[in-house]
Every structure is written in structure tokens, then in C-alpha cells.
């Protein structure tokens, strides 16, 4: 008997989150949940995406070392980038994903520097720029992998945004 769509969605996103946490441990400074958020915005209902964003925001904030604010701004601005870019680009195009990756690559050093200066913390700019470059490269690739692995059945169970 096949799994109900809701159960399959929970299992799929739970597995994605577990892999994401291990990826965060392996490659610090790079967000592997961001491509998942975009995939969720493309394929699922807004409520489910908001719940995922909340969980991932708490994970990013909890494992991070900056005062609260990075995750909220990071995922908030990611959603803004996606919705504003949809006016110009096809929402599922790889080029659009590369541009969002570039935006995140620029956002990461700017956001970290801004928040660390507010909290009077010293951070290395060189490392942040390198992480931004890695984020730019990783984002479209992770999105592509997640998009290919996302169950076909779940693509139809909710109206895309």
C-alpha cells in the first residue's frame, strides 16, 4: 500500500533536514536548507513552506554563533528574491536558480558582517567571501539534486504558489 502524500512529504522533508544538518557540519558557512526552501515554494503550499522555514531558521540560529537575526533575514530575503525574480524569470529555470545562488553568495558576507558589527564581534572577511562563493556554486547544484529526487506524487498534491 503506498504511503499517503502527507506522510511521504513529512518523511521526505525530515530526511532532507537530517542530510542538511550533516552537510552544515561538514561544510560550515554554507546553507543547504535554502535550495529546499525554494523547492518547497515551487512545489508545495505556503503553510508547509512556512513551517519548514521556521524549523530551518531555528536550526540555523541555534547552531550559529551570532545573536538572533541571521536566519530570519536570510530566509526572508531569500523568499523576497524568489518572488521578485518570478516577475522576470521562469520560476523553475536553472538560470534563475544560479542568479538566486549569486544573490545568496553576496548576501552571506553582507549579513554576517552587518550582524557581527552590531554585536561588536570580529569576523574574517576573507573567509566570508570564500563561503559566499561556495554558496553561489552549491545552491543551484543542491536545488537540482533535490528537484530530481523530489517525489513526483508530491508535486501535484498542492497548488504551487
Amino acid at each position: 500500500m503506498p504511503l499517503p502524500n502527507n506522510v511521504l512529504a513529512i518523511l521526505w522533508w525530515a530526511a532532507y533536514t537530517v542530510i542538511g544538518v550533516w552537510a552544515h557540519r561538514t561544510l560550515p558557512g554554507i546553507d543547504f536548507f535554502a535550495p529546499g526552501l525554494i523547492l518547497s515554494l515551487q512545489e508545495q503550499s505556503g503553510g508547509r513552506t512556512a513551517l519548514l522555514a521556521l524549523v530551518w531558521m531555528l536550526l540555523a540560529e541555534g547552531t550559529g554563533s551570532l545573536p538572533f537575526g541571521y536566519g530570519l533575514a536570510w530566509y526572508g530575503l531569500l523568499a523576497v528574491m524568489f518572488f521578485s525574480g518570478r516577475w522576470l524569470f521562469e520560476a523553475r529555470s536553472f538560470l534563475f536558480m544560479c542568479l538566486i545562488g549569486l544573490g545568496l553568495g553576496l548576501l552571506h558576507p553582507a549579513l554576517t558582517l552587518g550582524l557581527s558589527s552590531l554585536a561588536q564581534l570580529k569576523v574574517s572577511l576573507e573567509r566570508l567571501v570564500l563561503e559566499g562563493a561556495m554558496q553561489t556554486a552549491a545552491f543551484p547544484l543542491v536545488w537540482l539534486a533535490a528537484d530530481n529526487l523530489f517525489p513526483k506524487r508530491l508535486r501535484q498534491d498542492a497548488r504551487p504558489l
Partner: peptide, 10 residues
Amino acid sequence: GHRMGPAGAL
């Protein structure tokens, strides 16, 4: 774990 996640600046 060591430094983790995108907000792991320190």
C-alpha cells in the same frame, strides 16, 4: 561538531 551552519561566524 565544529563550526556549523551559515550563521556559524565564530
